[in-house]
């Protein structure tokens, strides 16, 4: 074991892989010293495990109705009670984690690369390319994200796919801003000039040398944005424009529980706790990652 740690923390790594693994190991070590980040990482890990193993963790079918069991308070049989159709809320919350994780991952996979490329291209070429691309970015940034997403869903039609597209459309501009700022800091560096002199094309310089350097600030930003994405998705579901029934989406579940909030508080309250827990987890993890990967920013906090 000691050999492995020594190999990982070696000051003069013999291979790129050793250097990379060493770096990852150092980040993990630094994260482990930050209690909130550990809590965040555990919550996010729990979310992933719950989503993967939902059928094993759930105690009942999330969609099966049983009208004789409707609106039961939390008990040993139904840990979070049952809803107005007699469905077990705990099982619905567990299966709902799949929807939340899907939305969050897809939005990140769509929005982050788009923002990254737009920002890097704008920063690398400068001039009119920069002005036009950033002009468009700023217009999108100037709109409130939720309202933008709502308007796009209204145009595209309700449903989970369109919700993901709409949230991604609202999310990419902030990534473009960050990527541009990062690109500007090393556009005139010598290593970029060296690659250019070797005859590398713009695509190659951006793709191989600029984008990889933007990733760490992008990872921080995306993690910190996750909470906002989850809330927006839940909001769309709550209004009735996101995931459609009978899908156990957390926002839509809260919306259905509205009618019973006074007498059967658990129907609307329980999915809310799931949303808060997961969002907090991403916030904690994002804060911790920022402290580790971007110490300059971390000191300010």
């Amino acid at each position: 074991m000691a050999n492995v740690t020594d190999w990982l923390l070696d000051d003069s790594p013999a291979s790129r892989m050793q250097a990379r693994l060493g770096r990852t190991y150092r980040i993990v070590l630094a994260l482990a010293k930050n209690p909130l980040a550990v809590v965040g990482a555990i919550i996010v890990a729990l979310l992933i495990v719950t989503a993967l193993a939902a059928p094993l963790i759930a105690t009942a079918d999330p969609i099966a109705q049983n009208l004789s069991q409707r609106l039961l308070p939390p008990s040993a049989d139904h840990w979070m009670g049952t809803d107005e159709l007699g469905r077990d809320i705990w099982s619905r919350v567990v299966f709902g984690s799949r929807i939340t994780l899907t939305i969050v991952l897809l939005v990140a996979v769509i929005a982050a690369p788009v923002g990254l490329v737009v920002g890097a291209v704008a920063g690398y070429f400068g001039g009119w390319t920069d002005r036009i691309l950033m002009g468009i970015t700023d217009i999108f940034l100037s709109m409130p994200k939720l309202i933008l997403a709502l308007a796009f869903v209204a145009a595209l039609g309700p449903g989970i796919q369109n919700a993901i597209i709409a949230i991604a459309i609202a999310a990419w501009p902030s990534y473009a801003r960050i990527a541009r700022a990062e690109t500007l800091t090393f556009r005139n560096s010598e290593f970029i000039a060296a690659v250019q002199l070797q005859g590398a094309s713009a695509t190659r310089v951006i793709g191989r040398h600029i984008l990889p350097l933007c990733t760490s600030s992008m990872i921080i930003r995306v993690t910190l944005d996750m909470a906002g994405i989850i809330l927006t998705a839940a909001g769309l579901g709550f209004i009735g424009l996101g995931a459609q029934p009978p899908l156990p989406e957390w926002g839509a579940m809260i919306s259905r529980g509205r009618t019973f909030i006074v007498d059967q508080w658990w129907v609307a309250t329980m999915p809310g706790f799931a949303i808060i827990l997961v969002s907090l987890g991403f916030c904690f993890l994002g804060d911790g990652l920022r402290d580790v990967l971007d110490p300059k920013q971390g000191e300010k906090q």
Binding site: L231, I254, I261, T269, I276, L280
Partner: peptide, 18 residues
């Protein structure tokens, strides 16, 4: 402060009403 980023507004409103 972090709760402000992670609590859904509509949920807090509902719980407040209840």
């Amino acid at each position: 402060g972090l709760l402000g980023y992670s609590v859904p507004a509509f949920w807090l409103g509902l719980v407040g009403l209840a």
